[in-house]
């Protein structure tokens, strides 16, 4: 073995000041690099990013082809636009949960939790990486939708960016709720992390207008940022203007939900530490 490259006093020479910006950036990028490396080394996971969205796109694409023969106005574009934007919400939610769950599955959570990586840095890293995956998957789907069905996502106009932004924030909030559930209830709560986003699906008027919902559910729908995105999408596709007032309301709801879910995550992490649950993950 070689001479030990160890340092008598590592703080000034070997490592950056732990609370400085450079150290924080190093830790956040560490999370991104880890998740990217894990993805790159797992061809099945790369396949999975594209598989389900493509299946969904094909399914709804053929439905729209059928509806086109029935001369149903606007429905073709509505459904394809809805499928694309739904993927933004679903992937934003699931990717952040999966990144956390993978630390549990690989029995690496303790290594992460005893490192100087703060909760904020950890979450920012997860969010950045999930953003990359969402953009990649949606870009691939948008290309497919154009190639197969002649649907151009740019038909959503300038509203596309805020539509996606609102859905990303909501998806990350839902992902955080899933993580908090696992921290609070243990690994059995993984099903919540996977399925929570599907609770939103029937209420948010993704594939149909909110007006078809019964009155009590319409009231609930008003408080879902996603409802305003999908209603706004249909308005734009029908030739209307981007409903900025609805988007502003949706954005405000997103900010409130994100603040609440961050507080929930912090509480759940504290609960897990108080009850020794972190130590038992992966046993």
């Amino acid at each position: 073995m070689t001479a030990l490259p160890l340092h008598p006093d590592p703080a000034p020479a070997l490592t950056l000041p732990p609370l400085g910006f450079a150290a924080r950036r190093s830790r956040v990028l560490g999370v991104v690099r880890r998740d990217f490396a894990a993805l790159r080394r797992s061809p099945i996971r790369i396949f999975e990013i594209l598989f389900w969205p493509t299946v969904e796109l094909l399914l709804w694409g053929f439905v729209t082809l059928f509806l086109r023969t029935q001369r149903v106005p606007f429905v073709v574009a509505f459904l394809l636009g809805a499928v694309l934007l739904w993927q933004v919400l679903q992937k934003a939610s699931n990717e952040i949960s999966i990144a956390f769950l993978e630390d549990i599955w690989s029995r690496n959570l303790l290594n992460v939790q005893v490192s100087p990586l703060s909760s904020t840095e950890y979450l920012v890293g997860l969010v950045l990486f999930s953003l990359g995956k969402v953009v990649f998957a949606v870009a691939m789907m948008a290309g497919l939708a154009y190639a197969l069905y002649g649907f151009g996502v740019t038909s959503l106009g300038v509203g596309l960016v805020p539509f996606m932004g609102v859905l990303l924030l909501l998806g990350w909030s839902l992902g955080l709720v899933g993580i908090a559930a696992v921290l609070r209830f243990g690994e059995n709560a993984q099903v919540i992390a996977w399925s929570l986003v599907f609770v939103v699906q029937p209420l948010a008027g993704i594939f149909y207008p909110v007006s078809v919902l019964p009155a009590p559910l319409r009231a609930v729908s008003w408080f879902l940022p996603a409802s305003h995105v999908f209603e706004g999408m249909r308005t734009v596709m029908a030739g209307g203007a981007v409903p900025w007032d609805r988007l502003a309301w949706a954005g405000a709801l997103d900010v409130v939900y994100l603040a609440l879910t961050l507080a929930l995550y912090a509480w759940a992490l504290g609960y897990a530490r108080r009850h020794g649950k972190l130590s038992r993950f992966g046993d």
């Binding site: 950056l16 732990p18 830790r27 690099r33 490396a37 894990a38 290594n111 490192s115």
Partner: peptide
């Protein structure tokens, strides 16, 4: 799934090694 050198690199960044 990570390579040995990738794992050590990731933790070097978690510990903000210069």
């Amino acid at each position: 799934p990570l390579l040995v050198q990738e794992v050590i690199d990731v933790f070097a960044r978690f510990y903000a090694v210069r």
